[in-house]
């Protein structure tokens, strides 16, 4: 599924990702943890194709296809989805319009038929219901005036609607209250399947109580410095990043 090998990324000439390698097979959920400023968001933006993130060496591919050669929208059409750590506000564009436009664009890029309006509405209602979101929220400008937690729910709603094949969740848990954390996690878990992969970036074990990872990686100073099973997250929770920060 996702293969990253010896990736180097600079922003404005400053190296941030420094020889990172990571492999997420289809059907698996991998957690990435690491101190503030380690490069976790940089990794997720690089995978999504944000401009200004210069790959100076290494590779990243999805099912053998070179991701780095694709535009962000092409990556989205291939099934890459990033749930943003800080979702953007789009004034004047209701979430319904936004999601419909995105879905149509992806269908078109893949040569699939458009989802009909009634079918779309039915699916949105279902997804919003699952995330306990009020349909009225979907009629206002996307994320405009939403609370931090509401924005995160909106990311997951988009994800449920777009049904991506590879999911990157960048601190989706931050800003969520206890109930929302459970509801959102259930939404994410609903997408777990043998042909999907997930990269879950988080600082806290409590998210991983809901979304059980197959593997846990520690990202420090721009590279993966340790990898292990779910127990690694528990160890980090107890002992912090001290020893890895030193190792990096």
């Amino acid at each position: 599924m996702l293969s990253i090998s010896n990736l180097h990324v600079s922003i404005g000439g400053k190296p941030i990702i420094d020889g990172l390698s990571l492999h997420v097979p289809a059907g698996e959920v991998h957690a990435v943890m690491g101190p503030n400023g380690a490069g976790k968001s940089t990794l997720s933006y690089t995978l999504a194709g944000r401009a200004g993130y210069a790959v100076t060496a290494g590779s990243a591919s999805l099912d053998g296809e070179d991701l780095l050669a694709l535009t962000p929208d092409q990556r989205a059409a291939r099934g890459v989805f990033l749930s943003f750590q800080y979702p953007l506000e789009i004034p004047g564009v209701p979430a319904l319009t936004f999601i419909r436009t995105a879905l149509n664009a992806q269908h078109k890029a893949r040569g699939e038929p458009e989802t009909s309006a009634p079918e779309f509405l039915k699916r949105v209602r279902e997804a919003a219901g699952r995330l306990r979101m009020d349909m009225d929220m979907l009629k206002r400008g996307l994320n405009v005036g939403f609370s931090g937690g509401e924005k995160k729910r909106m990311e997951i709603l988009q994800m449920l609607m777009l049904e991506p094949r590879f999911l990157i969740l960048d601190e989706t848990d931050s800003g969520l209250d206890i109930d929302a954390l459970r509801i959102v996690s259930e939404g994410v878990n609903a997408l777990r399947s043998p042909d999907r992969g997930m990269l879950v970036i988080t600082h806290y074990q409590r998210l991983l109580d809901y979304i059980r990872p197959d593997r846990v990686h520690v990202l420090a100073a721009g590279r993966i410095v340790a990898s292990g099973g779910p127990e690694l997250a528990l160890e980090l929770e107890r002992e912090g990043y001290d020893k890895y920060a030193r190792a990096a």
Binding site: D73, L82, T101, A109
Partner: peptide
């Protein structure tokens, strides 16, 4: 940032 956000959902630059 807004442009990139839209693109990451599958819209090309013009769209």
């Amino acid at each position: 940032d807004q442009l990139f956000y839209c693109q990451s959902r599958g819209l090309d630059a013009e769209a």
